[in-house]
Structures are given as C-alpha cells and as structure tokens.
C-alpha cells in the first residue's frame, strides 16, 4: 500500500493501539496488497476512552468486557457481582490496554 495512505491511517488510529504495535502495523500495512485497503477502512476499532467510561459506570455488570468482545470474561464478571467488586476496580486500569489488544487482534485477522 502507499506509505502516505498508511501514515494517514496510523495517525487517525494511533490512540486505538499500543505505541509499540504502531510500527508493526505500519510495516504490515505497507507490505499488504492494495485490495486490502477497503477492509482496513471498514474494520471497527473500539475507542479505549469509551471503554474506560463504560468500565467506570457499568463495569460491575461486565458490560465493558462485552463491548470489546471478551464475552466470556463479561459473563464471569456479571455472575460474580463484578468479581466481588475487586475485578471491577482492577478493570478500570486494565480495560484500556485490553481494548488496544483486541483492536490489534482485529487488525491481525485482516492482515
């Protein structure tokens, strides 16, 4: 793919990935075929800030985990009163990283 296009994508989505993943994504995107561009644009990346807000307000019910696609952990949180309240608090700090990891997984599926 064209480097300028890839750089635009990276700039627009930098907050959705861990900083150490950005160079890897850039290299993969540049090496990827032009036909993958529509798919890259279509992929639904989750915003870590949104998941943090959801986690603070309704993380007790596991909804933050449901939103990012970690349904199993979400059910676990829901059935255990948010992991006895402890997991809820841990997830306030973990959810942004978890969201970025999930976004990376989505990108890896395409590339």
């Amino acid at each position: 793919m064209e480097a300028s296009k890839v750089d635009m994508f990276i700039m627009a989505n930098a907050k959705n990935f861990e900083s150490y993943q950005l160079s890897q994504i850039r290299d993969k995107l540049i090496a990827a075929d032009e036909s993958k561009w529509p798919m890259v644009q279509m992929v639904q990346l989750k915003d870590p800030s949104t998941s943090l807000i959801i986690s603070i307000f309704v993380g007790h019910f596991g909804i933050d985990r449901f939103i990012i696609g970690d349904v199993g952990i979400g059910v676990g949180k829901l059935l255990t009163c948010g992991g006895f309240g402890i997991w809820t608090i841990i997830d306030w700090f973990m959810i942004q990283g978890a969201t970025r990891e999930k976004n990376m997984e989505k990108m890896q599926q395409i590339l």
Partner: peptide, 13 residues
C-alpha cells in the same frame, strides 16, 4: 458486592 455495599440496592447476581 460493591453496588450493594455503596447503594444498598442488590445487583443482578
């Protein structure tokens, strides 16, 4: 349960 401890209202579980 954090919700019950703070608000007094039970949560779904």
């Amino acid at each position: 349960c954090l919700i019950k401890a703070i608000t007094g209202i039970p949560c779904p579980s």
